[in-house]
Amino acid sequence: MLTIDNLELSITDPDTGRVSEILRGNSLTLAAGEALGLVGESGSGKSMTLQCVLGIEPPGSSVGGRIELEGRDLRALRGEELRRTRAEDLALIAQNPHSVLNPVLPVGKYLMEGMSEARSMPKARARLRSSELLRSVGIEESERVLRSYPHQLSGGMLQRVVIAGAISAQPKLLLADEPTTALDVTTQAEVAAILDEKRREAEMSMIFVSHDLDLAAAVCDRLAVMRYGELVEIGTPEEIRDAPQHEYTRELMNARPKLHPEEA
C-alpha cells in the first residue's frame, strides 16, 4: 500500500549553509491495514520520515527517493491534488495536541474544518458527524467539548479530539507521531487504546512513531528500528524482542525500564 524507496533527506541551515543529513536512504513497505512502529531515540529521523510522507518537511529540506501510496508518487503531487490527498488519504496525529489546534478557535471548528472545508462535506452533516466522532472516541459531553476552546481541555481530551479528526476521513494511512508522549501516564494508555481500536475497526494502515518500544510492540504488527537517520532493523515485535539482529536494537531493548529486573 505504502512504499518508501531509498528516502533521503538533508536540511541546509539558511544562516550557516551547513548541510545536515537527516535520513540516509531508507526503504520500507507497508501492507494495507498494517501498523508499523518506527522506534529509536530522539533525532533518529522518525518524525522526519512522517513529514516527508505528508510533504511538510521544514524549509531548506531536499528530499530524495520515492514515496508511493497505492502506486501514486506522493512527492510528485502539487497544488489541489496534494491538498486533497492530505485531506482524504493521510492523517497526522502529532505529539502535542495543544499546539495542533488553533488556540483562538473552538474545538468544533477544528473538526468541521477538516470535514467540510477540506473535504467538501455539507456543513449540517459535518456538524452531526462531529458529535458522533467525539462520542466514538469516548467523549460523552460532545456538545460542550465542541464549544470549548483548546486551552479549556486537558491534553488527553484534546488528543482524543485530534484522533476523532484524523479518523473522520477514513484515511488510508494514519501517521501517529508519538501521540501519547505529551500526555500523563494514566491517559497515555487510554489514548493508545482508542487509537488502536479505531484503526483496527476501520482497517487503516498506520505508521506509529514512538521511542517507547513496549508501547509500539503492543499496537503494531511490525517494528522498524531507526538510528542516526538509518533504518537498522525491521521485524515483528517478537523477532525484535527475542532475536535482535543489530547491536543498537539490543541496546534499545536493554534500556527499557524493567518491573522485575531478574526476568530480563
Binding site: 492530505r86 499546539s99 472545508e117 477540506a118
Partner: peptide
C-alpha cells in the same frame, strides 16, 4: 507555527 503547519497537513485550503 505548529497549528498552521498542521492545517496544511490536514489539507485545509490555502486561503483558509
Amino acid at each position: 507555527s505548529d497549528h498552521v503547519l498542521m492545517a496544511v497537513a490536514r489539507g485545509v485550503p490555502r486561503r483558509l
